[in-house]
Design a protein around this nucleic acid. Structure first.
Lengths: 134, 134
DNA sequence: ATTTACGTTGACGTAAACGTAAGGTATACT
DNA sequence: AGTATACCTTACGTTTACGTCAACGTAAAT
């Protein structure tokens, strides 16, 4: 039972428009089967889409995101291409770890800001119950 | 000794163009002093810029990024605004933690892809030393 | 039979985030 | 004085990533 999906199925599941999915195909990042003119998506198409969107959520450009998804594919290249691929994968990992640092720092900053706010609120409450203006 | 920076100083330090910095000002996210027509940036301007760019590296839109930077500011609002701010900070934290999940998963996927490549390379080497084509 | 719902291919429109001249000013060297 | 350098404003151009019609096909439901 090889499940398939319509374009609307995927659009619904991942909360994008059908236009978006067609656009990704236009760019060559998806190649669904056709039933007449209708697009029929396989589970692996679905996975591709899911991973591309994950990349986008991380702020990658569509091209970058799709490039990374291609890296996941089984490597059936010759030695030189494999070595290049390994190098690019390594580079991406470095970038993502740096991004993780940024993210952790921003989370810290947000926690600090939160604390400051909560502290200010406590001050207001203990000092003069109902004060509304500065 | 309150250090100041020219637009070029900051552009150089953060590897953006002066156009970018002026654009951020145009959008209201930076308000440097002027010496005649020249822009003079304070350390706090510099920090603002740094944080905005950090947000952008995480894939936030410029508006989102600048909004978050504003959240770091000392809260001198009334109770209602403070409560709203706390709520928004909380929301951002939720989003960032979700993004962190995405990031960890992508790093895992990349490590797996890397392993597959390295394994394939080892296979090639042990089996038939110099093979180049599939 | 025709409405309703979903699908298709163009093709033009748009918002964000700058890029890229063009032309003017001020200060710094030589 | 002349020129180089760095800064400025104004304004139109560009890329990315879709949005938004228009005009049409098809297939199930009423």
């Amino acid at each position: 039972m090889n499940k398939t999906y319509t374009i609307r199925d995927l659009a619904g599941e991942f909360d994008v428009t059908t236009r978006t999915i067609r656009f990704y195909e236009e760019k060559g990042f998806l190649k669904p089967e056709r039933q007449g003119t209708r697009r029929i998506y396989s589970p692996s198409d679905r996975t591709r889409l899911r991973l591309i969107l994950r990349g986008k959520r991380l702020g990658l450009s569509l091209d970058e995101s799709a490039e990374i998804v291609l890296m996941y594919g089984s490597p059936r290249n010759n030695r030189k291409q494999l070595e290049k691929l390994v190098a690019r994968i390594g580079q991406k990992q470095v970038e993502l770890r740096s991004q993780r640092q940024d993210l952790e720092f921003m989370l810290l900053d947000l926690r600090n800001a939160e604390d400051k706010c909560l502290h200010a609120l406590r001050e207001m409450t203990t000092r003069n119950g109902q004060q509304e203006k500065t």
